[in-house]
């Protein structure tokens, strides 16, 4: 067993995990942070995205023991301090960027690092950045729209539909 210690959403946590325990298993089963979803478990879908030291990674494709000593942020850590939705989350709600919501935690985590690195992305930038995030419901248009809106840019419905 490996004794591990990390910061999750700003809080120090400790645990004892096997070598093979995935980060997503530690988050969901040990910490009961079930906002991080497992869609495929084969590194394909992005539902399990979290931030490790500020960068997106697939929590199903990293061992918990590898996050020892690191800072992890999950969807539970994204809302504003008063519990209200942050700008990106609110934009997803306003623009119907989700239907069943299964992919949404991963989408929000990806959108967050995208907008940090590229505050005014084009629609193509957004679609490329979301290459590893699969959504079975929305057809992506409204997700792209939500991220455009969250970046403070005008949302051009006609252009989006034509893409």
């Amino acid at each position: 067993m490996n004794d591990i210690k990390m910061k999750v959403n700003g809080r120090e946590v400790t645990g004892s995990v096997e070598g093979r325990t995935l980060l997503v298993e530690f988050l969901r089963n040990d910490l009961r942070l079930t906002g991080t979803h497992v869609g495929c478990d084969t590194s394909q879908c992005g539902a399990c995205l979290v931030h490790v030291d500020g960068e997106v990674v697939k929590a199903c494709s990293m061992f918990a023991a590898e996050a020892d000593g690191r800072e992890v942020t999950t969807i539970e850590g994204m809302a504003n301090a008063d519990g209200s939705l942050n700008t990106i989350q609110q934009a997803f709600q306003d623009h119907h960027g989700l239907q069943c919501g299964f992919c949404t935690p991963g989408m929000v985590m990806a959108a967050t690092t995208l907008l940090r690195d590229n505050p005014k992305p084009s629609e193509t930038d957004i679609r490329e950045y979301l290459d590893g995030n699969i959504c079975r419901c929305t057809g992506y248009h409204n997700i792209v729209k939500a991220i455009m809106a969250a970046s403070g840019q005008e949302v051009d419905r006609a252009a989006l539909a034509a893409e």
Binding site: S43, L114, D131, G132
Partner: peptide, 9 residues
């Protein structure tokens, strides 16, 4: 290569 999360690891 792959997607942003793959490239970070």
């Amino acid at each position: 290569i792959g997607d942003p999360a793959v490239r970070n690891r």
